[in-house]
Design a protein around this nucleic acid. Structure first.
Lengths: 235, 235
DNA sequence: AGAGGTCCAACGTCCTACGTCCTATGTCCT
DNA sequence: AGGACATAGGACGTAGGACGTTGGACCTCT
């Protein structure tokens, strides 16, 4: 029964009452919230309590506070979740758990299953874009920074055809978390031959072969796993 | 560049410094953190600031505060994420977006892909348990509360064989979010014939037929979608 | 009309005091 | 001796006030 202790539902909790205020007034992301002082008056608590509640809501993206300007309804992106997952994974890794591997294989399991579905459904524009991205990877295969962004866009674009913005966000969140953890634990790797694996995925998807696409994705993650387990040993 | 504004990495931010403290001292979940007063001294800031930082970290599960006892390293479960996702979905739904449908189809897309993989890998114990759960669903098909818990355990048990605790947690988080949103937006439904769908999934999995299992999962979600779109219209 | 500076509402930090809760310790009873 | 109960202390929770800092809005001057 930590419902009250944590997010504090619509019960007496300050956070819950602010959340309820957003719901009741149907405020969209970006809409202004009452000022801290107004909330103090409305909720009948001290400014300290109001600020702590806002800070907690800000931490999960429900509220956005802009210094000297006001408080607003937040974007509620998955970024706070990514940060927490990153932290948790880094900490777990330091404590002997295989949390990095778990995160990687979470991505593998999900994406390998999804790629089957996306086969044959990718519009021509996206295919063109994917082909272009593979080309970019092949070209500047030496820039770790640029490669990351390209790799990210490839994965995002690949699953765009599933036509589910939330799904895309979630996949991107997992990508981001893995990326950040890798950056914290391992040395920046040489992109090496990664572009080939992406090309294989793209070819299989274009060919309309679901099983081959799934295999290609798994091979891609096999390669990442190899690199990661190699460098993470010196964690 | 909202890294500093949000979680505040190891930069000057108080949150970041507390997170760094956990990492540096390699504290496991449940381990005690310095008291607020000690943190005040260590970090050289006021108690207010310390408390706000702790509140933010608590909101994402990194820290757990127990009234009158102390602050501890949190469990870092996905529960805060579930709550945020729930809130976001409810709010989005009220604002005309199809966020509930998105959440449902996120689960469908992911689980339909995963069930193919789990085919033929479920140990006998789990299969027995799954069969039992289907039986339970069939029996007390009238208790909405009990049915929810059984349904949840079915899905958790089904994907247990993938042997990835993080994946299980994520799937459970999605289940939980959808469940909470449904509770907030729709009337409690009559479990009706859901048990049959679960039985179909189980039979396909036992038969080792990946495609049939995927279809069974999709049919299951089709049914949920039908119920949801029917009752959510009166939101 | 545009560039610049000023004003001020609103958030950020700090300090102090007091209330509340939980645990641990110790006592008393059985 | 062992357990139930009362107590004391530490630690978090809330409150109120004061001052610093920021950034958008408005006004002025050119």
């Amino acid at each position: 029964m930590n419902r009250a202790a944590d997010g504090a539902g619509p019960s007496g909790g300050i956070q819950g009452r602010i959340k309820r205020l957003i719901i009741d007034e149907n405020l969209e992301p970006g809409a202004p919230l009452p000022t801290e002082v107004e909330l103090v008056q409305r909720l009948g608590v001290s400014r300290n309590s109001v600020r702590e509640a806002l800070k907690a809501l800000q931490a999960v993206g429900i509220v956005e506070v802009r210094h000297g300007f006001g408080t607003f309804v937040g974007s509620m992106s998955l970024e706070p979740f990514v940060e927490a997952l990153t932290f948790r994974t880094v900490l777990g890794q330091r404590q002997g758990r295989q949390s990095l591997l778990e995160l990687l294989e979470l991505r593998e399991a999900v994406e390998a299953g999804l790629v089957r579905r996306v086969v044959g459904r990718i519009p021509e524009d996206d295919l063109t874009r994917l082909r272009h991205l593979v080309g970019v990877m092949r070209q500047d295969a030496e820039s770790p920074e640029g490669h990351a962004r390209t790799d990210r866009e490839f994965h995002v674009t690949l699953y765009q055809a599933l036509d589910n913005p939330l799904l895309s966000e979630v996949l991107d969140a997992f990508w981001d978390a893995l990326h950040q953890v890798s950056g914290d634990l391992a040395q920046p790797h040489r992109p090496s031959e990664t572009w080939r694996e992406h090309q294989e995925i793209l070819k299989a998807v274009r060919a309309g072969d679901a099983s081959r696409a799934e295999d290609a994705v798994r091979r891609h993650f096999d390669d990442i796993r190899a690199r990661l387990t190699r460098t993470a040993a010196a964690g």
